[in-house]
Nucleic acid binder design. Structure first.
Length: 112
DNA sequence: GCGCTGACGACAG
DNA sequence: CCTGTCGCCAGCG
């Protein structure tokens, strides 16, 4: 977990199924509070990290599926989320505040 | 080597 | 409250 991107991937990998987090929360946790765009870029390159990264569990702070167009197919991101029990209506996660997974609160580097 | 752009978000006006 | 601007940093023309 020395590299910034490695830390991003590592955190995203800790997101449990049925929960979702935001770019900003992850950016803040890895030490780049204003680097939310970098998290998005990291997700774009996540396939080259070597390990599986559940990028579909990362959305913007409003719970919108802003990155759905980067997944193959028409609605793969939404299907993956709904397959885990998350309700998505019109590219918007329902009850986002309830399923939101905050690394600052539910995770610490000791467990990684 | 420069400037624009991007899966975002905070802050100022 | 809503809109505009800036920060973040890497990739590409």
């Amino acid at each position: 977990m020395s590299d910034l991107y490695d830390r991003i991937y590592e955190v995203v990998r800790q997101i449990p199924a049925g929960r979702a987090s935001s770019y900003g929360a992850i950016a803040k946790f890895v030490g780049s509070p204003r680097g939310s765009r970098m998290v998005g870029w990291a997700m774009n390159q996540s396939h080259s990290s070597g390990a599986y990264v559940p990028a579909h569990r990362v959305v913007n702070r409003l719970g919108m599926l802003s990155g759905k167009h980067h997944f193959p197919g028409e609605n793969l991101m939404q299907e993956l989320l709904e397959n885990e029990g998350i309700i998505v209506v019109d590219d918007q996660i329902q009850d986002f505040d309830k399923i939101f997974w905050d690394p600052m609160k539910e995770l610490d580097w000791d467990s990684i």
